[in-house]
Amino acid sequence: MAKAFSVQATIASFGGNLLKLEHNATSTGSTMKLNLFLPAQAEKGKVPVIFYLAGLTCTGDNGAEKGFFQATASKHGIAIVYPDTSPRGLGVQGEDESWDFGTGAGFYLDATKGSYAAGYKMSSYITKELPVALYGQFENLDSSRVSIMGHSMGGHGALTLFLRNPGMYKSVSAFAPISNPKNCPWGQKAFGGYLKSEEEYDEWDATELIKKWGGDFEALIDVGDADNFYNHGQLLPENFIEAAKSKGKADKINLRMQKGYDHSYFFISTFSEDHINYHAKRLL
């Protein structure tokens, strides 16, 4: 069987290796780059996996280089996948005109509108094509023990993909997630550009999806109270919590407002250990 990924670099990291990979993805119609951290334990047997979804303007490098996730993941023997945030170079009109839409801003949904519908299929890529390709080539990844987390737009992605795919992930966590995108400027811009009708917005909004969730729901969510985007109404985690409360799903959601922290990787790296430990308890 032909290998899906070519390895562009292998970098020693916390006793394991960070692999810089690329492959031709059919769901996005583009060459996709990503990072894969394999802990030392992967040399002896199967290890669980966490997908980390990055935010607006980011690539698969940001979390791997600035999140400090590998330090704790290596102790537990957990692999981490750092995908890109959108297809790149498709030549879709308007995809490079602004930083919060198009390139680097795929919003982890499957677009249905206009030219974006052909390649902006980040939900299908993250939940279907990418994991199948990874598990096929890297047999030391345990496809039965998988969790997901993300930051900002990636926090939105983590919550929505978890809620849209019951049973796929063992746990979910988020840093400063865009929690109610249909009611914030970032989300309204993205949904308006990617989705052909407002009726589709609820399908990609965590605050709406939690209302339909069956059974218990559990999550760890960190938000900085000095986050400029939070304070200007882009994140709206309170809306998510209120929707969960209305359906009796809020008891196991740990929303932590972190005093003095902003939206940056200084914030993420400070609490990355907590998030890896949170997932480790559910994966190991």
Results as ranks from 00 to 15, higher is better:
L90T: 06
A111M: 01
E208K: 04
L195N: 08
T28S: 01
G102N: 05
N254D: 04
T103F: 15
D227E: 14
D251T: 15
I148G: 10
H279T: 05
F107S: 07
S144D: 14
C184G: 13
A40R: 09
D222G: 13
G106T: 07
D227H: 09
A9I: 01
P87L: 02
F14Q: 13
E273N: 09
K20M: 07
L209V: 10
S246H: 13
T72D: 02
Y82N: 06
A190W: 06
S124D: 12
G224Y: 03
K211N: 15
A71I: 10
A158I: 12
G136C: 09
A250N: 08
D202S: 15
W204M: 15
M257W: 11
R145T: 03
L235Q: 06
Y135G: 09
Q188A: 10
D61M: 03
K249I: 06
R282Y: 07
V7D: 09
A79I: 04
E273G: 01
G193A: 00
G67F: 04
L36P: 12
T207N: 14
F240K: 06
K249D: 03
F37E: 09
G45A: 06
K189P: 00
S147W: 03
E218S: 11
I78N: 05
F191Q: 00
F266K: 12
N228H: 10
P177W: 00
L18Q: 11
G104P: 05
Y125R: 08
Y194I: 04
D205A: 12
T127V: 01
Y201I: 14
K182W: 13
P181C: 02
Y194G: 10
Y135I: 06
V7L: 01
A12H: 04
G114I: 05
S30K: 06
P48V: 15
P83V: 00
L159S: 08
S6E: 02
L134N: 10
S179P: 03
V172F: 09
P39T: 02
L220K: 12
I210L: 13
P181H: 12
G150V: 13
D205S: 14
D61H: 05
A176E: 04
G215R: 01
W204D: 03
Q93K: 11
